[in-house]
Design a protein around this nucleic acid. Structure first.
Length: 294
DNA sequence: CCTTAATCCTGGAAGC
DNA sequence: TGCTTCCAGGATTAAG
């Protein structure tokens, strides 16, 4: 469910709700949602009594950290930040949400932290496509888990994107969904992006020009920026860490297969690319030579 | 290399 | 009112 704008909205709301608060308790009620090289028990003892720090995001993943120890002359590892980090991936149905004291946690809550003000930060994920991973430090998380990710979609430059596209004949839609090429885009925003730049989702990566990549990068930032400003997209159950749904309504093709294009009034096509439902406008994005179907 | 299908799960919506 | 089938914002794996 959550793509970059939703995960970024969670990160921002977490900053205002939990940063600086001490961890006083924690429960992992399903150990099969936990991975990485630091077991929950190790992390729990490292975090107990510590204050949460600023969450970090890369693509669709978040890193929860604790604040470095208060400046003391001998605290060498304080410079390296955290003693233990938790990486969170929300998958399709995951939520990371803060609940007021006395509130019951929702069903399918697999992990939670109790904070000093009696609020609880909980990871809830009915479908369990998401997960949590423990590491000793942000450096370990970056080198062991995030190293396979491409540049974040808000940061990637045209040259890097072009490098990721030019060597392949895979459909552009499939390449943009590939987190190793660019991290953060998912099914909704790829379709919206391709409509915005008027490129067919079937375009082979290798024929995308440098100039196309400039337009892709510019549109990506604009689109994702607008979605973040609106708090993300809620189709069914996405909410940020404060429980608020997303207000982004700027979708022009996603979920509109068979309806009229808002730009040219022609019918929108839909089909399957990389096993994902894809909607595009053959009139605006059409390049019949790429063998579209739908 | 590339694509396709299956897989991990639950729950909501649609169809009969 | 059921019961069945399909579909979903993700990602990996195996097979062809």
């Amino acid at each position: 469910m959550p793509e970059l704008p939703e995960v970024e909205s969670v990160r921002r709301t977490l900053v205002s709700l939990v940063t600086g608060k001490r961890v006083v308790d924690g429960v992992l009620s399903r150990n099969d949602v936990w991975g990485g090289d630091w077991p929950w028990k190790t992390l729990e003892s490292a975090w107990m009594g510590q204050r949460l720090g600023l969450a970090e995001r890369r693509g669709k993943q978040l890193a929860l950290v604790c604040e470095p120890a208060a400046a003391s002359p001998g605290a060498v590892d304080a410079a390296h930040g955290s003693r233990g980090v938790v990486c969170v991936h929300l998958g399709m149905s995951g939520r990371l949400c803060v609940y007021p004291r006395g509130t019951a946690l929702p069903p399918h809550t697999h992990w939670w932290l109790a904070l000093e003000d009696e609020t609880r930060l909980a990871f809830t994920d009915p479908r369990r496509f998401g997960g949590l991973w423990g590491y000793a430090s942000l450096e370990d998380l970056r080198s062991q888990r995030w190293s396979s990710l491409g540049d974040d979609a808000l940061v990637i430059g045209p040259a890097t994107l072009h490098r990721g596209l030019c060597r392949t004949r895979r459909a552009l839609k499939a390449v943009l969904l590939d987190q190793r090429v660019v991290a953060g885009l998912g099914n909704i925003y790829v379709d919206e992006l391709l409509f915005a730049v008027k490129l067919s989702p079937w375009t082979p990566g290798g024929v995308v020009t440098r100039s196309d990549c400039h337009r892709l990068v510019r549109s990506m930032r604009t689109l994702l920026g607008r979605a973040i400003a609106a708090g993300g997209t809620t189709l069914r159950d996405y909410v940020d860490a404060s429980g608020r749904a997303g207000d982004f309504r700027g979708h022009r093709v996603y979920g509109r297969g068979g309806q009229r294009c808002r730009r040219c009034r022609g019918p929108l096509a839909s089909g399957l690319i990389a096993q994902r439902t894809t909607v595009w406008c053959p009139g605006c994005q059409g390049n019949s030579s790429w063998g579209e179907s739908g």
